[in-house]
């Protein structure tokens, strides 16, 4: 079992944890965090699997995938946070 495999399995585990969170949690924020966890796990799997024993350089393509994923996730999180905030204010308005 190589280091990469360990990292990869760990990444999968993180993804699984995130998945459980997204599916199981009720609170909006918790679910958003769990989604981010998922994203992290997925990134970890990809990064780990692009590893090549030196002196070979790591495969750049998964890295590109990961970077794109991070960008998407950041923007999506931003949108989601905005939505949550707006929803929160609307709901408190209604409740008040």
């Amino acid at each position: 079992m190589t280091e990469a495999t360990i990292y990869g399995l760990a990444g999968l585990a993180v993804f699984g944890l995130g998945l459980m969170g997204v599916l199981g949690a009720a609170d909006r924020l918790r679910r958003l965090v769990a989604l981010n966890l998922c994203a992290g796990g997925a990134a970890m799997v990809l990064v780990a699997s692009s590893w090549r024993p030196p002196p070979a350089a790591p495969d750049p393509v998964p890295h590109a995938l990961v970077i794109t994923g991070i960008v998407v996730m950041v923007s999506a999180t931003a949108v989601a946070l905005a939505l949550i905030r707006r929803l929160y204010s609307l709901e408190t308005d209604t409740d008040a």
């Binding site: 190589t2 990469a4 495999t5 990869g8 399995l9 990444g11 999968l12 799997v45 699997s49 590893w51 090549r52 024993p53």
Partner: peptide, 9 residues
Amino acid sequence: PPAAEQNGP
């Protein structure tokens, strides 16, 4: 085998 194990170097 588990999926990830195939992804070894």
